[in-house]
Write a protein that binds this DNA or RNA. Structure first.
Lengths: 338, 338
DNA sequence: ACTTAGCACTTGGTCTCAGGGAGTGCTAAC
DNA sequence: GTTAGCACTCCCTGAGACCAAGTGCTAAGT
């Protein structure tokens, strides 16, 4: 058995299936790709590939279709992430320039990625958890209401109106805020609670009740923050996929609405040395997504938030991986620059 | 011609078509509804209704289907908004209690409405434009960076990091902030720009450049605020509609992503004396939504933001209208209370 | 002036059947 | 290890027949 050629056949099958969206037979294969052998030989290779579970036949007299496992081998061994075309790079520049706000940047990015890949794109908000405290602000809005603002070095700003039992005095509030900023600036947001608690303990006793209430509010900000939020675009592409995928669009939409599902999925994806990670079909633990693949990567600092694309398992992996990687890089650059 | 019965026939056709999702014939009509006449009579009525453009036949030997115009008559003259069942009211309570944050409230609300109606639900963010300024905060984050926060009496908080040319001095910033709050608190957000500009003019000359920059940032907050944002839920229900609607799901998803489209649609919907407004099929100016109807109403103060539901023209209008109205009322109550 | 029974007619959906096409697996020869 | 040849399987398509549902019209009844 000719191993290299067998893998070449697998590649050809994947490429043709992605391109023509229908099972591919041995004859068409030799015609479209210049494999210098006859269709019978290819059939032998295909039988072997089928034995290994890399391809499957929908029915006896149909061509073959890659299995999840087949796509996996294709992605892992048969393709490298090709760079984007200049036109695509220019599109990235054109769409991402001129954004200021973090929300705006993410919004544009996700639309861009969706348009580049013709698929659903998602981007996770920068995780406050990995960020460090840059500033804390406390503003008295009313006798018993304080606006708390927590600003992280990632650029995220979280705010919340906290009601307090004690009547707030502006000067005391400024004093407390200064203590907080002084003691907590630079602390990882995850440690904010502990750091602030220590500060409270060191305060004069009569300041402690109010300070404790404020710390409680700030902890809420640090914990229930945007780290579980994401932006999405391109759901309409789901419906444009082919007919059989159309049947399964409803569960996919459900999964997309359950952002928790997606967020877990993204964060569970181990980072890959090549930069992008791919989860294919049933590798995915969620039922609604058994016919979809996810191509994702981190952006910003290492092990940071994720950005990715979701589409039918029958997708153009090389192109999608390239787009995801390129957009992630530009996004990192933009966020670092601002 | 018996006018009342003819309208009764129209109602029966709409109800049956919504229920059984297939064209309804004269015979089935007399069987299912106790109209005391024969099918031939109904056929005459149906011919008349067809002449008036209220119903149509997909083909010669099929039953009739309501037209957009038919639904319109049904909605306007043949149905009243029925109150919700106790079970539904309880569901509303259960889901909306325990929300604090505005984001959280809207999120829960839109999910609730979607589940109640089995359709796509949307809710518009409270418009900052109609709100009044409650507080302004300016915090120096870095030598050339100021965090601006604008808090409205609607509970919305807008923030933005503004970079400034001049190096900021903390005391000056506090001074300027105090001038702003003093002069602008209570002003409608729409007039914020003018009000602040006047304040700037009255300041000592050496404060004016920095103040002007801050005002520019605050104006951006006031203008490009959340008033063009919305929350959505239940897109998966789109795919669960019947087959013919499945063809048109892609344009609908596109329209939903183009939030501008939806927002314009919602704001163009005149408020109806009965509380809920309905836009049916082609009454809708957007191409992607020719097969969908929108049921919406305002919440909060009069002429305020909108909340609504979007689904196939073949929807259960009375139930949907009831759900939208009920949820809008609860939402208003919650927002007023907090 | 309505209402009704009866009936011819239209049409889409379903079923069956046959034929064609695409593709496979196997065998035997190279 | 490769190839040609061939029988076989299975899906898809179209044609034809048939049925069910529904209509519109006419003529008769109230």
């Amino acid at each position: 058995m000719n191993e290299p050629r067998k893998l070449e056949v697998l590649r050809a099958i994947v490429e043709d299936y992605v391109h023509f969206r229908e099972p591919v037979g041995s004859k068409a294969l030799v015609e479209r790709h210049g494999l210098g052998v006859s269709s019978a030989t290819i059939r032998n290779d295909m039988a072997a590939l089928e034995d290994e579970g890399l391809i499957a036949a929908p029915h006896t007299s149909a061509g073959r279709v890659p299995t999840d496992k087949g796509y996996r081998v294709f992605v892992d061994h048969l393709t490298s992430v090709r760079p984007l075309s200049p036109a695509e790079k220019q599109a990235i520049h054109a769409l991402l320039d001129g954004a200021d706000d973090l929300d705006d940047v993410l919004e544009r990015t996700v639309r861009l990625l969706s348009q580049l890949t013709n698929q659903v794109a998602v981007v996770q908000y920068p995780q406050l958890g990995r960020a460090r405290v840059r500033h804390i602000e406390a503003v008295a809005l009313a006798p018993h209401e304080v606006l708390l603002v927590l600003i992280a070095d990632t650029g995220t700003v979280e705010q919340r109106v906290q009601s307090v039992v004690e009547e707030v005095d502006r000067d005391r509030l400024v004093y407390l805020r200064d203590r907080f900023v002084e003691g907590a600036a630079g602390t990882p947001v995850t440690h904010l609670d502990a750091t602030l608690s220590a500060i409270v303990d060191a305060l004069p006793p009569h300041d402690q009740p109010l300070a404790a209430e404020l710390v409680r509010g700030l902890s809420v900000l640090a914990a229930s923050s945007r780290e579980d939020r994401m932006v999405m675009a391109g759901t309409a592409y789901l419906a444009r996929s082919t007919s059989d995928f159309l049947q399964s669009i409803s569960p996919v939409l459900e999964a997309l609405e359950e952002q928790v599902v997606l967020l877990r999925l993204l964060s569970e994806m181990a980072s890959d040395p090549r930069g992008v990670t791919v989860t294919i079909g049933r590798e995915n633990p969620y039922d609604g997504l058994v016919e979809t693949s996810v191509v994702a990567t981190g952006y910003g600092r290492t092990d940071g938030p994720k950005i990715g694309v979701l589409g039918p398992t029958r997708m153009d992996y090389p192109a999608t991986m390239a787009a995801v990687r390129a957009v992630a890089r530009y996004l990192s650059k933009i966020l670092a620059g601002s």
